[in-house]
Amino acid sequence: MDVATLGNMLNTAFVFSTALILAALGGIISERSGIVNIGLEGLMTAGAFAAAVSAFHAQEAGYGSASPWIGMFAGALFGVLFALIHAVATITFRADQVVSGIVINFIAAGSTLYLVKLLFEGAGETSLVDEVFHKVKIPFLSDIPIIGEGLFNSYPTTYLALILVGIVYYALYKTPFGLRLRSVGEHPSAADTVGIKVLRMRYTAVLLSGVLAGLGGATIAMTTTGTFSHNTISGQGFIALAAVIFGKWNPLGALGAALFFGFAQSINNVLQLFDFSSQIPSEFIYMLPYVLTILILVGAVGRSKAPSALGEPYFQGKR
C-alpha cells in the first residue's frame, strides 16, 4: 500500500467519522449529566432533515456558498427542538429515559418524512442541494505526507468537529461548568447540597446534546448526500452511541472510537480496489467494522463504567 492510498484512506475515515464525532460528543454531555440519550439517531435525523431543507431554500434564495452553513445552523436548531422533548419528558416528568429516547427516534423519523412529503409535494426525498461543503486545503499543513492528505484536506465540518472535541474536553474537565455537569451525573443530591441547580444543569446538557447531534446529522446532508430521505440517517446515531460507551464517556475516547469506525469503513472502500478483494466476499468486508468493534471491546476495553446516576430521575429533596 503506498503513501497516497494511505492518505486517501485516512481522508475517507475522517469524512465518515465527522458526524459520529459530533453526535458522540452530544451523547457524552447528556449522559455525563445523568440523562441516557438513546435518541441520538433521532436527533441526527432531525438535524439532517433541517439542514437539507433550509440549505435548499437558502440556495434558491441566492445565498450561495453560505447555504450549507445556514443548513448547519438549522440542523442544530432542529436538534435542540427534539432534545427539548427529551428533556421535558425525562427531567420534568421523570419519564423513563430509554423509553423517551426511543420515542424521539420514532417521532423524528416519522415527522421528518411527513414534512418532506408535505414540503416537496409528495416526494420521498428533499431536492438536491448543489451548494454543499467542499474540501478545504490548509496551506503548508496539507503538504505533510499522509496526514496532510488525510486530515488537512477535509471538509470544514471535520475541522469543526475536531475543534469541538477540544472544547468539550476542556469544558468538561477544566471548567467549573464541567465539574458541575459531571457531579450532577455522579451524585445529584450531593451536587444539590452545594447549590448546583441539578435540573437546570441537566436541561442544559440535554439541549447541548441536541445541538451537537443535530450538527452531526447536518454534516451528513451537507457533505456526502446533499439531500434527506428515509435512509440518510440509518444507524449512525446508534454507532455514535456505541462510540460514547466504547470511549468510556470521555470526549477523547469517543473521538478515538469514532475515528476507528470511520477507518474501518474506509478500509472497505480501499480493500475493494485491490485484486485479492475479489476472493473475499464483499459481505465480509462490510461486516469488518462491526466484528472489529466487538473484538476490541472484548479484548481491550472490557467493563466500561457509566456515570453513577445515569438513568435516574432526580427528585428534589431526595436523599
Partner: peptide, 16 residues
C-alpha cells in the same frame, strides 16, 4: 409516516 408520530406519542404518554 404520520402513524409513526401517533405511535411515538402513545408510547410517550404511556411511559410518562
Amino acid at each position: 409516516e404520520i402513524i409513526r408520530i401517533v405511535i411515538g406519542s402513545v408510547i410517550f404518554f404511556v411511559a410518562a
